[in-house]
Amino acid sequence: MNFVRRPVLLLSLILATWMLGACSILPWWEPDVPDQVQRPQGPGNSRWVPTDWSELPGFDDDKLHEAWNAWVRNCALPHPAFAPLCPDIRRLSLAGEAQKRAWIVDNLEPYRVESMQGSAQGLLTAYFEPELEGRRQPEPGFAVPVYRPPHGLERGEAWYSRREMDTNASARASLRGREILYLADPVQAMLLQTQGSGRVRITEPDGTRRLVRLAFAAHNGHPYRSIARWLLDEGEVRDASWAGIQAWAQRNPDQVDALMHRNPRVVFFREEPMDATAAAAGPKGSQGVALTPGRSVAIDPQSIPYGAPIWLVAPAAGLRRLVFAQDSGGAIRGAVRADYFAGWGSEAGEWAGRVRQNLQMWVLWPKAS
């Protein structure tokens, strides 16, 4: 039996020796590993390409002090990769521009964001926080309700559509008593829902007036459909800004409900008080920190993690600056995709309505220790 086993053992040793030798030469014939290796690993739907600071257009010209408050706010709920840097970030709040820029270069590395297909070009849009008038009780001229999340709404499950909320008796019953306040018309309500938050100056039943914020609380689980896109595609308007949509609604009052029903998604809100501190910042984004006008963006969290600093370049919009991934949205999908928070009020709204520009982004990530 031993004589029989020896050739088998010898053959096994020869085979093992050959395999070890083959493994040692594998790199010789394997294709080169490209520079586009994700380092660090992106969240799944984007590719991060390590690059040099010189590739970032306008990096030496940004007014970093304008961005630093947003970065400090990030440190209230930091991404784990950035938590060790937060003491420095807070300490540098009063530092000069050169010192801030040098710290960024010393501690972070830039990665160009690309789609999984290798495209570095994407889309920038913008959003804002509208300022509206409201009433606590319905009255002539203020009859469009804004709702809290209704009873029976379950996260991840589709509830009644917008049309059903207007026509279905069960849906109407579920909404009864969930009214927060009333706005002047359906276009204002759609504007509030599309932007995801708003400032409303309420007139209470006793005549007192106060400013509140309506913040996003939930939605009905249906897909978002743009009424502006439909009006453009049908040739109904050339100006698809909110002012243009409002003008169309005034010309076509009998078609307004049908237009609204083309977007089945409905957003529900919660009311938040507005003191001086809250009024000086935007609403809380998906990260959980207050948004900073001009320095906060909504991104696809499957491509860029919340809290990440981003170098954003959109030349047609005049933007080459440091921003932060602090929010998300139902229409913000893809690797190179951002929705830029413009602030609040009519001026911010007019600017945001014009933004639909080509975009490039670089994630700035902590250097490996």
Rank of each mutant, 00 (worst) to 15 (best):
L232K: 11
R320S: 08
L108T: 14
S296Y: 12
G318N: 11
V323D: 10
V267K: 01
P80W: 14
Q121P: 03
M361P: 10
T203K: 11
Q121V: 06
G330R: 05
D254I: 01
A317K: 09
P305K: 13
V187N: 05
L85V: 06
R155E: 08
L13W: 02
P149M: 08
R90Y: 03
G21L: 07
V297Y: 01
L232C: 03
V187D: 05
E131Y: 12
D239I: 06
P283T: 15
P43F: 14
T203Y: 05
L211M: 15
S115I: 11
E350F: 01
R209F: 00
P43Y: 12
V313G: 08
P50N: 12
E129A: 04
D275R: 12
V336D: 12
P87A: 05
I104T: 10
Q188L: 05
V267E: 01
E179L: 02
E129K: 04
F268H: 02
V49D: 13
A258S: 07
C86D: 01
L9F: 09
H222S: 06
S241G: 02
H222F: 04
R176C: 10
A120L: 12
G318S: 06
G122D: 11
S115D: 07
V49G: 10
S12G: 13
G353F: 03
T277Y: 06
A316Q: 02
D60S: 12
G334M: 03
R270L: 03
P31E: 09
R172N: 00
L322C: 10
R209I: 01
P264K: 02
R155H: 03
Q38K: 13
C23N: 08
R262C: 06
T292A: 13
G343R: 07
S303A: 13
Q99A: 07
S286R: 07
E271R: 13
F324A: 10
L26F: 07
V146T: 06
P110C: 14
E204D: 11
P253C: 01
C23D: 09
M190L: 12
Q357S: 10
P309T: 10
A317T: 10
I89N: 03
P31A: 11
L11E: 03
V297F: 00
V105L: 09
P264W: 01
M1I: 00
K63Q: 06
A218I: 04
G294T: 11
M190I: 14
A342Y: 03
A368M: 13
V323K: 10
A215I: 02
L10V: 15
A228F: 05
G141M: 04
G235F: 02
I180T: 02
V49W: 15
A22V: 07
R337K: 14
P110L: 15
V4Q: 05
L312V: 09
D61F: 12
K284Y: 10
G349T: 07
M1E: 00
E271T: 12
L364N: 02
V37D: 11
L26A: 09
R91L: 07
R172E: 06
P205C: 00
E97W: 11
I332L: 08
A298Q: 12
R176Y: 06
V355E: 01
G207C: 06
D166V: 15
